[in-house]
Design a binder for these strands. Structure first.
Length: 800
DNA sequence: GCTCACAAGATACCT
DNA sequence: ACAGGTATCTTGTGAGCG
């Protein structure tokens, strides 16, 4: 078993970095696969490939033939196979990927880390990594050593010398780790050394003394549309890095990944600045510079800069220790058999699945060729649902809007993985699509879906097998291994992270089957899963209605049910489970039912406002709020505060007298004119650079510029007024939050930055804006009351 | 020149 | 480079009207 720290190739040899040193596997025998039957039916063609020397060797492996050829000649060979119409498997794998799939390897979790942080010249307009000189770098190793690199203004080559010293130190550790370093610190270092394309040179202590190695680190532009998979939470900055032969761990990125669902926290830390996160986690802040420029301090009081710079790294080390970020990350990547640098969902799951397939003696399709596609464009002019673009997802019930009591929640646990297992959904077990109708005839050895997609019944497919393996492993860890361990021990922590990684893997399988760039993609399968989900939740809803429940709401895999009097939800859920199992067996010929609907508790009081917007209170007093404005970071603070009051009145106090709310609204209307600037300040995130807004939309017209972008432009033009820049995130670039107050709404919204606010705001506009979220709740409960009139006071006027 | 319905983008949520 | 579904707010356009 090789424990690797990192692995990469030069398209020929594979380099495996371990704790002991670098192992080189020269001319790693690169290969890919075709079906044996294809090789048999194209005998002459395959013989020609061998004779011409393009393919060096062929070996029969079960149902496949492995074709050996140098990776560099790959394109040529594959083109010929494509022309001949031969399907290939795994032809896209780089030598290092193939190595991970084939060999006995595991990621080393015991890796040394160098935490670091840089300070840059801040005299220019804004902050742009790579443009401004780097003034200092602090670093702390996981072994406790502290480093500080800087130079004096007089030293012409000071910066480059400093960077080279740093890179040398970096080579003494396995991992380089910073905060937002993927978009800032590392971009700056790589760019300052070698320009945008650049790699940077250094010494790797693992190699024999004196032997030089280049640390390659690409600097690439981040797509403006691409939000990185974590909705809008992930990206900041224009560039990011792609380190090749050293490990890099951006703690901010992983921290976001761990917390992106926690809307409460996101509201607190907003852009996930080191300062905000340290405050939230450690209750400790960065050193306050009182608005003084970094450059000035560097020039005049270098010791002070050192203190400041060092404090940031100390925070990093403390955060990692408190939250175990790097350890969790290492364990997670070890479970996936992924390199530390391959952090995308697809990158992490791919090698894991390929290894899983190999264990079963099977191979997975090659990645589809890159198709330039734009979902929106394909929808224009022609009917929606283009060949392989969009497909339907989960079903959302129209809520029965208003205030309810005695609401029960039912939930399919892991609906999509369960469907995959139950219907044996997999690329290799797929038998085509037919028209399905109740009671139709179809082959006995086939499972069918409500969409008509058919799958082999007896031989379990690769994907369901992997899911089964993943869930079995997870259960083994949770219910057996962890029981024997001491809580809070290192091995317990390790086990906990392992089981979590398995859970994530199981839940990601559906996603990659719907991702058109992945080797697992098949529209019929992805849509089969979602539409079967729709079928199941609708059928369950029907069953519940027939058993005395009223459907209040439901989304994809959940149902919210109302029933007064005695209710034994667990018993009903069990009966429903049996019903569904029998139904699926009879109509779809399934073999084993893995679907399980369980009770998610009761709500004494429940507000159904809109699709994806509701709130409820459990008997123990715990309140659950979903999707409402109080949970959104772009909500007006006062609007959220007032909406919270309404929610509490209904759920905690059970107040249902409409007169209470009418007078409450009147009081709010009167209070608007006295609101403080903070309460009426909007905030929204810039999801791309200012220049990228206002381009032509799909109708060929210039897209209007949103208010927050106009204000961002003002910020850019008035940077001198903004005071000290917070952290690495520019005040007006992709990822920044923009604040504004509305001063006029007569001819379009006019927003001004809080710093330009003179105290006059558009009161009528704010009356609407502050009350809208509350009014939406009140309208859903009391649809007959004209709340517009209550706000305008017309209902009062009528009385006089 | 006004109102109004509508399309489309942008953001941030939910499962 | 995991997926789709949805509400809400904003601006610009074009129809209908006087």
């Amino acid at each position: 078993m090789i424990k690797f720290v990192n692995i990469f190739d030069n398209k020929k040899d594979v380099f495996v970095k371990t704790k002991e040193g670098m192992q080189v596997f020269e001319n790693y025998p690169w290969h890919f696969f075709v079906d044996l039957k294809d090789a048999k039916s194209n005998k002459v063609f395959f013989q020609d490939l061998l004779d011409s020397g393009y393919v060096k060797d062929m070996k029969v492996e079960g149902e496949y033939v492995a074709l050996y050829c140098p990776f560099l000649e790959r394109d040529n060979v594959i083109r010929q196979l494509k022309t001949q119409g031969v399907k290939t498997y795994e032809d896209d794998l780089r030598p290092w990927q193939l190595f991970l799939v084939n060999e006995e390897v595991e990621l080393e979790t015991d890796q040394s880390i160098l935490f670091f942080d840089i300070e840059t010249d801040d005299r220019g307009v804004g902050i742009e990594p790579g443009r401004d000189p780097i003034l200092s770098i602090s670093a702390i190793g996981s072994d406790g050593r502290e480093f500080y690199f800087s130079y004096r203004p007089e030293d012409k080559n000071g910066e480059l010398k400093m960077l080279r010293k740093f890179v040398k130190t970096m080579g003494e550790y396995d991992i380089l780790s910073g905060w937002n370093s993927d978009s800032f610190d590392l971009v700056a270092i790589a760019t300052r050394i070698n320009g945008r394309e650049g790699f940077f040179a250094g010494y790797n202590s693992i190699l024999p003394r004196g032997k030089r190695i280049e640390f390659r680190c690409m600097v690439i532009e981040q797509g403006s549309k691409d939000l990185g998979g974590l909705d809008s939470v992930r990206r900041s900055g224009k560039y990011k890095t792609k380190p090749i032969d050293f490990n890099h761990l951006d703690l901010m990125q992983k921290y976001k990944e761990m917390h992106y669902r926690d809307t409460e926290l996101i509201k607190k830390v907003r852009s996930f600045s080191l300062s905000a996160v340290s405050m939230a986690t450690l209750n400790e802040d960065k050193v306050d510079l009182h608005g003084e420029s970094i450059y000035k301090i560097w020039k005049e009081r270098p010791d002070e800069l050192r203190t400041y710079n060092m404090q940031d790294v100390r925070l990093l080390v403390k955060l990692d220790k408190a939250l175990n970020i790097s350890f969790q990350k290492l364990v997670e990547h070890q479970v996936c058999c992924a390199r530390l640098n391959d952090y995308t969902s697809h990158g992490k799951i791919d090698i894991f699945a390929l290894r899983g397939a190999k264990r079963l003696g099977k191979h997975l399709p090659s990645k589809p060729e890159r198709v330039e596609r734009d979902k929106r464009e394909s929808a224009e002019g022609e009917p929606k649902g283009n060949e392989d673009s969009d497909y339907a997802g989960g079903f959302v019930f129209e809520p029965v809007k208003g205030f309810h009591t005695n609401v029960y929640a039912l939930d399919y646990s892991s609906l999509y993985p369960s469907i995959i297992k139950t219907f044996n959904v997999s690329i290799d077990s797929f038998k085509g699509v037919t028209q399905w109708e109740e009671g139709m005839e179809f082959p006995e050895d086939t499972i069918i879906m409500p969409t008509g997609a058919m799958f082999a019944r007896d031989e379990i497919g690769i994907i369901p097998s992997i899911i089964q393996f993943v869930l079995d492993s997870r259960n083994q860890i949770r219910h057996v291994d962890m029981k024997k361990m001491e809580k809070d021990s290192l091995e317990y922590q390790n086990a906990h992270y392992r089981q979590y990684a398995f859970k994530v893997l199981a839940n990601s399988m559906y996603g990659i089957m719907g991702a058109s760039f992945s080797r697992y993609y098949k529209r019929e399968l992805a849509e089969g899963i979602t539409l079967t989900g729709q079928y199941l939740i609708k059928m369950s809803a029907k069953w519940c209605e027939e058993h005395g429940y009223q459907i209040i709401y439901g989304d994809s895999d959940s149902l919210y049910l109302k029933k007064d009097g005695e209710v034994d939800l667990d018993k009903d859920a069990e009966t429903l489970k049996v019903f569904i199992e029998e139904h699926l067996r009879r109509l779809f010929n399934i073999k084993t039912c893995h679907l399980y609907m369980s009770s998610e508790g009761k709500f004494d009081r429940f507000l159904a406002i809109e699709k994806k917007k509701y709130a409820g209170i459990h008997p123990d007093g715990e309140i659950k709020v979903i999707g409402l404005e109080v949970k959104k970071r772009d909500s007006l603070p006062q609007a959220a505060a007032w909406q919270q009051e309404v929610i509490d009145s209904f759920l905690i106090h059970g107040e249902t007298d409409s007169r209470f709310y009418v007078s409450w609204v009147r009081a709010c209307v009167n209070a608007v004119k006295n609101l403080s600037p903070k309460e009426i300040t909007f905030q929204k995130r810039l999801s791309k650079e200012i220049e990228d807004y206002g381009k032509d939309n799909k109708n060929g017209r210039a897209q209007p510029i949103p208010v927050h972008v106009k204000v961002a432009q003002w910020v850019k033009d008035n940077l001198d007024k903004m005071g000290q820049k917070d952290d690495k995130i520019n005040l007006y670039s992709q990822g920044s939050y923009i604040e504004w107050i509305v001063t006029s709404s007569k001819n379009g919204i006019v927003g001004v930055h809080p710093l330009a606010f003179d105290g006059h705001f558009d009161i009528p506009y704010y009356v609407d804006a502050c009350l809208a979220p509350s009014i939406r709740i009140l309208t859903s409960v009391y649809p007959k009351i004209d709340w517009e009139e209550v706000i305008s006071g017309k209902d009062l006027q009528r009385l006089f």
